[in-house]
Nucleic acid binder design. Structure first.
Length: 777
DNA sequence: CAGTGAGCGAGCTTCCGCTTGACTT
């Protein structure tokens, strides 16, 4: 056993550091925090200066025993957890739980895993910084108090098992408020005018695209303008050339990586993190949970060399990026390839893609600015005060654009910029070839994607790199929000075209409102948000986290006592909790929609035990009827007509083989019911309100055919079936794989039994798993 | 899997941030 025991947070990091430190050091890891507030109850004694009750979590007990043993054998213990608030707390917990002595325990930190940095750290040890630890305790305890006092209020006033917290509740608020902005949004149309000009001289050939600098509100105005253009003379007023520059973006942090992977590859944030973790564990990239844009000197030098080799000296520009977020704790580097000279790696398609993206972003960040030349040509209209403008942009030096271009959230369809413009001179007359006025509609603010929500949270300083993905999972798991697609609707628009001396008006249609993987709030999400913003505005305030972070900073600087800070927060907060438990209304989002013309009874929408419903008849009406809302419908926006339509299902549409055929919508979408068999309707093809008996029979027959194909063979109690993932064997309620080498049609009973036996033996030992990720009931 | 929509009320639920596994379909 070595004399020196070094404890870091992550095992992958431990491995690299051990290599750098040599044989006198044994490096191991704590796997993050080793203990936490007690799970049962509050875990904090609010009447005794917020004394925390810390418990080593069950899945860490073995590890802690191991660390205890190792620390007893070592002469010196080096606590090398991260340099931030959480890392300091980990060191402190280790010291306490492992009963480490002050005289042989040393706290070291480094933000670069290089031999120099680590040896330097070893030379300059310190003791655990209790102020920083206290800032972490304050953070931890405040989050516990908020979460564990607010959630029970929701259980009582809204629905059991709900949750609230400093981070998740604000995330939900963002989604709900965006949806409300969209509900209130009134789309307005304008007429945008674009023209194509050609030369007045027949020997000179060019086409110049230009747009009018102002829009028209109505079709009449646009038409009048085109009328005037008929006789107008178009003259180049002036041309203007301006050089401009584009600079590369900073290297990746967790959130920018999530955003780019989402925009470029449509990865979910969890997916991105999973892939990045694999790259990290294989030693291919630096740590993937970071808010730092910092690059090590080693990385800067390798980048320089790599750029020089690939593109030449003039593409190099060494840059050090300042980390934007104030809360940045600079414990890590930016996310970058460990070996920048490797542009590509081996691995799965996804790993290759993500790695290459990280490589490009890192290399680009150390490359020269791109140089552009922007040309603007203003075109005067003889009988109009408006003017046309053509803009062109050419790249005079590509610089970093050679490897990387950041994607944009908004698809900016309106900005039309061409490349090189024809060389025109002021005073030159040009001729119109075509002028069009197209009706365009203003768009509602975009719904959040996973990545854009993360971006927004980061801007507000809410959440940390390690929690962005879990926060998204939580608000989905609680069913406050859902990630959905929407088909979009058709919209008519008008286009006026002036060609020669005719103005033609065309009626066109376009599809609008198509959504892919966007966040929509649920009814329960809306109710919970409204309740919380009404009763606990301070906590739901977007600035709340930023404000308390200032206090945590003061605690870390030793300028504020953490218990004083907590007391100042907790007293009014807890009073509000008590007051709310006592006095606030329980809420079920009830909304009266109107009167059912058939029965004359009241129609009402509300949240019931299993979700949102509409109800015809008062609560005390013994003949009241219910129906669930369809997917995508919200209580807040449901109309009386939509509500009544829900009661048209289930619908008997006819008979087949002497049995009723019923169309309806269930939990899994629209279906046809026949002979007590359910057959799903085809998405975007069938509609339960309009489906005919002929089409229903088609579906029934189709299903039957599929079912017969499903059964490949049957031997008494063993069946060979065709499943979603291919053929398999079903026996005793369990499924077994069929190796690719065997033809499922040729299997005998004995073959099957052999396969079953073979797979039974290597059945995995069942481990008890209890993690918060499995939140579903 | 394609329903229910209350009801006695017991007993449970819940936070945020550090870390990796071990589940399979």
């Amino acid at each position: 056993m070595q004399d020196n025991l070094v404890i870091v947070e992550s095992p992958a990091k431990a491995k690299t550091i051990e290599k750098l430190l040599g044989k006198d050091y044994f490096v191991t890891s704590s796997y993050g925090h080793i203990r936490d507030l007690a799970k049962k109850g509050l875990g904090v004694d609010v009447n005794n200066n917020f004394k925390p009750e810390y418990i080593v979590s069950s899945d860490k007990r073995k590890l802690v025993d191991e660390l205890k043993k190792l620390s007893k054998q070592a002469k010196t213990i080096w606590l090398a957890s991260d340099e931030d608030r959480e890392g300091e707390a980990i060191a402190w917990h280790l010291q306490n739980v492992l009963n480490l002595n002050d005289n042989n325990t040393k706290r070291i930190t480094f933000h670069e895993i290089t031999k120099d940095a680590i040896q330097n750290a070893i030379k300059n040890p310190r003791t655990v910084d209790l102020n920083l630890v206290n800032a972490q305790q304050a953070r931890r305890i405040l989050d516990r108090l908020v979460g564990f006092e607010l959630s029970p209020v929701l259980w009582k006033k809204v629905k059991s098992s709900l949750s609230a917290g400093r981070v998740q509740s604000v995330a939900v608020r963002l989604v709900v408020e965006r949806e409300r902005e969209i509900m209130d949004f009134k789309s307005e149309s304008t007429y945008k005018v674009a023209a194509i000009f050609i030369s007045a001289n027949k020997n000179e050939k060019f086409q110049l695209k230009a747009t009018l600098t102002s829009d028209f509100k109505t079709e009449k105005e646009a038409n009048d303008f085109l009328e005037r253009c008929k006789d107008a003379i178009f003259t180049v007023e002036n041309t203007d050339k301006k050089p401009s520059k584009k600079s590369p973006s900073a290297p990746f942090t967790t959130s920018t990586l999530q955003q780019e992977a989402s925009r470029k590859f449509r990865f979910s944030v969890a997916q991105t993190m999973r892939i990045a973790q694999q790259l990290y564990e294989r030693g291919l990239i630096t740590y993937m949970r970071t808010d730092s844009t910092n690059l090590s000197t080693l990385a800067l030098n390798t980048a320089k060399q790599t750029i020089k080799n690939l593109f030449g000296e003039k593409y190099i520009k060494t840059r050090q990026y300042k980390t934007k977020s104030k809360s940045a704790q600079e414990a890590h580097e930016a996310i970058r390839p460990t070996y920048l000279q490797n542009m590509e790696i081996e691995g799965s398609a996804q790993e290759k893609k993500l790695y290459n993206l990280i490589w490009k972003r890192t290399i680009a960040s150390q490359m020269a600015d791109a140089e552009l030349e922007k040309t603007i040509i203003n075109i005067n209209i003889s009988n109009n005060k408006e003017r046309f403008q053509a803009t062109g942009e050419i790249i005079t030096f590509d610089g970093f654009l050679k490897v990387y271009m950041e994607s944009n959230d908004e698809d900016n369809e309106n900005t039309e910029t061409s490349g090189l413009l024809p060389a025109l001179v002021a005073g030159q007359v040009i001729v119109r070839k075509e002028i069009t006025a197209t009706q365009r509609f203003s768009q509602h603010p975009p719904r959040y994607t996973e990545a854009s929500l993360v971006k927004k949270l980061e801007e507000l300083g809410i959440g940390r790199p390690s929690t962005y993905a879990p926060t998204i999972s939580t608000i989905i798991a609680r069913e406050y929000v859902s990630k959905e697609d929407r088909a979009g609707t058709e919209r008519n628009y008008t286009k006026l075209v002036l060609k020669s001396n005719d103005i033609k008006s065309e009626k066109l249609t376009e599809t609008v409102g198509v959504e892919k993987s966007k966040f929509f709030p649920s009814d329960i999400g809306i109710v919970v948000n409204d309740f919380l913003t009404e009763n606990f505005p301070a906590i739901l305030n977007y600035q709340f986290t930023a404000k308390i972070e200032e206090y945590f900073d003061k605690i870390a600087d030793g300028k504020l006592d953490w218990t004083v800070m907590l007391n100042n927060f907790y007293k009014p907060f807890h009073e509000k909790v008590d007051d709310s438990l006592e006095n606030s209304q329980t809420t079920n989002a009830e909304r009266i929609l109107g009167i059912d013309p058939k029965s004359g009874k009241q129609v009402l929408a509300r949240i019931a035990r299993f979700g949102p419903i509409v109800q015809i008849g008062e609560n005390d009406d013994p003949e009241k009827k219910f129906s669930s809302l369809n997917k995508g419908q919200l209580i807040e926006t449901l109309t009386l007509d939509e509500a009544l339509k829900l009661f048209e299902l289930p619908r008997t549409i006819g008979k087949y083989e002497n049995m009723d055929v019923v169309a309806s919508t269930g939990r899994f979408g629209p279906y046809v019911l026949h002979n007590s068999k359910f057959i799903s309707m085809k998405k975007d093809v069938d509609d339960p309100y309009t489906i005919t008996i002929e089409r229903a029979i088609e579906l029934i027959e189709e299903k039957r055919k599929k079912d017969t194909e499903k059964h490949i063979a049957k031997f008494d109690d063993i069946e060979v079936l065709n499943g979603f993932y291919g053929p398999y064997i079903a026996y005793g309620g369990k499924n077994y794989k069929i190796p690719k080498s065997q033809d499922p049609k040729m299997l005998t009973r004995d073959d099957c039994l052999a396969l079953i036996e073979a797979q039974k033996n290597k059945e995995p030992k069942s481990k008890t798993k209890t993690r918060k990720t499995a939140i579903k009931k």
